[in-house]
Amino acid sequence: MAQLPVELILMRQLASYLATPIFLVGPEGELLFYNEAAEGVLGYRFDEAVELPLAQWIREFPLFNTESGEPLSVDEIPVLRALRERDPVHGSLLYERPSGERVPVLATAIPLVGQGGRVLGAAAIFWPVSGGANA
């Protein structure tokens, strides 16, 4: 695999030091990284998930509409909307943990636009609704 753009490398390095849950995807929506704080919410260590293509991580991390309880489509997942629309996206959703428990989550996603205007991926900051950023 070729070296990733330095903007993504720096984003991962920053995320790895923050206690705010952060989820990072590449330009095709592939999972690149999530940090330790995100592991606490998602219920999987990053080492277990590693880097997954889009089709796989949306199965591994089931997301649902807060009101209807229906699965979110690819077009509704905040981090993928931010990537596609090149705009910040904020929303609420339900995440189904490995135990089957569904937890309400707030997510804010931003596109990562690098030098020269290249869209390099997107990052989502998220937290359980009742728990605060460090939950």
Binding site: M1, Q3, L14
Partner: peptide
């Protein structure tokens, strides 16, 4: 910077290519 232990894998290392 921010990589501990250094180095990480080549794809996550600035300047590798």
């Amino acid at each position: 910077l921010g990589v501990d232990p250094f180095p990480a894998s080549p794809e996550w290392t600035s300047g590798f290519d």
